[in-house]
């Protein structure tokens, strides 16, 4: 559940991890997580090793571990799922604290949690040590198609502008005594979403006209 993206994850710093080329970091992240995902679920020493490597990089980056751990909450819905797995899986049953659960299900749930957590921590570290526009630059170096890079950089550039616009609408609603409590209030929130779409769309048109008036030829890099 992708809610709660209201905060930026970047943690300012000048460590070697911060200064590393973004495309190297992206490759390292994908390589690391692929390795984690491809490791069999019951190879516990390997996972301990991965965690140690990740901890060493975090220590080198100077990002406080608590900063990263607090933000692993994005994982929460998925943790709930992993906790259900042992109860609904097939295979020989075993007893844990007086509850009968599936043994392979238990191993699979453990693997899900370890892999998921390692993945989230590694991604958080990238986000904490790399500015958004550097991530875009890194993807460009990795040969992401130019039109996609442009869309992405427009999105990164206007994320706060559109977010602030929504924030102002919320403030306006709140200052007129509006609090959303139940589905009866949905039409009001939906209307602000509609207004946000119209404003974003029109902003896109204005940006495009501004680009043309500054000599940007269609199809050229922004």
């Amino acid at each position: 559940m992708g809610a709660g993206h209201g905060h930026r994850l970047h943690y300012h710093g000048h460590s070697p991890v911060h200064r590393a080329e973004p495309h190297h970091k992206l490759l390292a992240l994908v390589g690391f997580v692929l390795l984690v995902v491809a490791t069999p679920g019951d190879a516990y020493p390997f996972f301990a090793g991965y965690l140690a490597v990740l901890a060493a990089v975090v220590a080198r980056s100077g990002v406080p571990p608590s900063y990263l751990l607090k933000r692993t909450v994005v994982e929460l819905p998925f943790v709930v799922f992993a906790l259900i797995v042992p109860f609904v899986s097939r295979g020989p049953q075993t007893e844990v604290w007086g509850v009968t659960v599936s043994e392979p299900g238990l191993v699979a749930a453990g693997a899900l949690l370890m892999k998921g957590t390692l993945g989230v921590l590694a991604s958080l570290l990238l986000a904490a040590t790399t500015e958004p526009h550097d991530v875009v630059r890194g993807l460009e170096r990795l040969r992401m198609p130019a039109p996609l890079v442009q869309i992405l950089s427009f999105m990164v550039r206007y994320l706060d502008v559109v977010g602030d616009e929504m924030g102002r609408m919320r403030t306006a609603l709140a200052s007129r005594g509006f609090t959303a409590r139940n589905p009866r209030h949905w039409p009001v929130i939906a209307r602000s979403a509609g207004a946000l779409f119209i404003r974003s769309y029109e902003r896109g048109e204005r940006v495009h006209l501004a680009m043309l008036s500054r000599g940007h030829a269609p199809g050229e890099r922004a």
Binding site: Q150, I151, F154, Y158, V162, E165, S200, G204, E205, M211
Partner: peptide
């Protein structure tokens, strides 16, 4: 590019 970028930002928001 600008339109899709802004619409993506809208979806995100």
């Amino acid at each position: 590019a600008p339109m899709a970028g802004l619409v993506a930002t809208f979806v995100f928001a």
